[in-house]
């Protein structure tokens, strides 16, 4: 069922080639190959410790790979290639690449000393050079999108987890990224707050955003994802259309995992 990733096709947003990562002697990623097309929503499933989050963090070079390469929109991430060698980028160069890749974290990571409006508008002003008016009006638009109109002045500690995560999504979107990475966005939330965050992500998917989502929410994956990738022990075990992988898994490890999830 696994298809060979097609490289250097213009339709690909993310291309990963033999991505490897070790922490000391422990190999977390054992050669990941995958392609995510523009506009595609892909969910990354798998037991904890399977390397899903580590892989996601390699895509914006929050994690340094041990081997392989990742291209986002055709650009090699984290390295400059010269004379057949990979030179790791400087902090400034990395920052430039990350501007176009939005990321949402499990623990929200809103800036604790900034109110909601500043959380969303600081990066567009500071990094994109937007005017205050421009950045503020865009921030208000995004707050409407995530259903938090009128909460501009709130500080993160005054918001529930679900609200904080929705602000975090708005903050990432304010940079107009071409790709959104979600690292278990609902895992730190109380069960009754999961729905409001998934609703915002559903809207994003419907708007055509390219999304890679590490999640344990099978129902969400089944309904929203175009494709599901199942990882275990650092390798891609199975991938395919969401319903096919979730409802009729081919591989034994996938079946075991899904049985435990239901």
């Amino acid at each position: 069922m696994t298809q060979q990733p097609e490289f250097t096709t213009s339709g690909a947003m993310v291309e990963a080639l033999d991505v490897r990562k070790s922490f000391g002697a422990h190999e977390v990623l054992k050669g990941i190959n995958l392609t995510i097309r523009k506009g595609e929503v892909v969910c990354l499933l798998g037991p904890s410790g399977s390397g899903k989050s580590t892989f996601l963090r390699c895509i914006n070079h929050l994690e340094r790979m041990s081997g392989g390469r990742i291209l986002v929109d055709g650009h090699l991430i984290g390295y400059n290639e010269r004379h057949g060698l990979l030179y790791e980028m400087s902090g400034k160069e990395l920052a430039r690449q990350r501007q176009d890749i939005g990321m949402v974290f499990q623990r929200f990571n809103l800036f604790a000393h900034h109110d909601v409006l500043t959380n969303i508008s600081q990066a567009p002003m500071l990094i994109r050079g937007q005017s205050r008016e421009q950045a503020f009006s865009r921030a208000r638009e995004l707050l409407k999108l995530v259903d938090l109109e009128g909460r501009e002045d709130a500080y993160p500690y005054q918001l529930s987890g679900g609200q904080q995560q929705r602000v975090a999504i708005a903050r990432a979107l304010a940079m107009n990224p071409k790709l959104m990475l979600f690292d278990e966005p609902t895992s730190a939330l109380d069960p009754e707050l999961v729905g409001e965050v998934l609703a915002v992500m559903r809207k994003l998917a419907a708007d055509g955003m390219t999304m890679l989502v590490v999640t344990h929410e099978l129902a969400f994956a089944r309904e929203v994802a175009d494709r599901v990738i199942f990882m275990d022990q650092g390798v891609v075990v199975e991938e395919g259309p969401a319903r096919q992988v979730i409802d009729a898994p081919q591989h034994e490890r996938t079946k075991t995992f899904l049985r435990r999830m239901h």
Partner: peptide, 12 residues
């Protein structure tokens, strides 16, 4: 996590 969030947004 604060630094990671800043990095991910593209802060130098």
């Amino acid at each position: 996590g604060q630094q990671e969030a800043a990095k991910a947004l593209g802060y130098t």
